[in-house]
Design a protein around this nucleic acid. Structure first.
Lengths: 154, 154
DNA sequence: GGCCCAACGTTGGTCGTACCAACGTAAGGC
DNA sequence: GCCTTACGTTGGTACGACCAACGTTGGGCC
């Protein structure tokens, strides 16, 4: 008998969509965190690198809006990325309030590595679902996210 | 122009199931937290009260397993519930290592109030989905949760 | 041209969820 | 009876998310 075996959760919880979502999200977060931690990074680092690679140099405020990260948290994460040489902060000549943040070659390489690890996690996450079901899930979640995004910014 | 408007997230993120899941979960968590905070409670409190109401008196270790809460976090949450008179801790006569935790009448009443607030949140959460789609989503998430539960305890 | 408001980066906090290690105590298997 | 296991508890960590405040800089408006 495994001493850490899960007992059945209360029905009140089991049938709440919010319970299912947050519990699955906790599992996902654990998987993703482990994968990133093995590379010495965390979620914020990946998000920022991805945004820089896709959109090119950007201000910190822009990065925060694109990645859903608070301005103050962007500062800390970029400090870490800069210390690792994955990113460089230069003053923006066109607007001296801003920093122009650029991804370095080492940053692009790191992003590639993280992408690979993340792909493995998705596979593990969705293992029990067939391809059509995965599409269903993604579609439903995307609609929810879109809906709540709109509400927040209205 | 809203200064806090969301810019488009990187495609790398948008198409990852893990991104959708954790972002929707973050929205859900915010909604649930606000609802519980307005009642002076938080998620752990609801989970524990629900388990006590459904399964009757239980040890703290059992509660932790049923609710997916670490033993040490159960201690703190029960302290708060006990301070509010929603729960009582008595030594278990049958096993002196254990506490027999029981829900009080006030605890049952509080649980009822929280249930109401939580129901409103589910409605807000799933607003954009039709009934059949909600069932789909719940079914898919339940399968994922079940799968990862089994893996963890194997 | 000057004022005022808005945006920017930064500092320094808070909260909730989730873990982990260690301790003393008590129970149970062998 | 010994040794292993479970229990409650303390204290600490990590991470994501958020908020308030400050000084600096830009831009709109009169």
């Amino acid at each position: 008998m495994d001493s850490t075996a899960r007992a059945a959760a209360p029905a009140r919880l089991r049938q709440q969509p919010s319970w299912l979502l947050t519990q699955v999200a906790a599992d996902v977060h654990r998987l993703v965190s482990e994968a990133f931690a093995a590379a010495g990074r965390r979620g914020y680092h990946y998000r920022l690198l991805a945004a820089l690679a896709e959109f090119g140099p950007a201000s910190q405020a822009d990065l925060g809006r694109r990645c859903g990260i608070d301005r103050s948290d962007v500062v800390a994460a970029l400090n870490e990325l800069a210390a690792a040489g994955l990113v460089a902060r230069r003053p923006d000549p066109a607007d001296r309030r801003r920093n122009a943040v650029v991804i370095t070659a080492a940053g692009e390489a790191d992003l590639g590595r993280l992408d690979g690890r993340l792909a493995d996690v998705q596979e593990e996450l969705l293992a029990p679902l067939a391809a059509a079901e995965r599409d269903q899930l993604v579609g439903l979640l995307a609609r929810l996210l879109d809906h709540h995004d709109r509400r927040r910014t209205s």
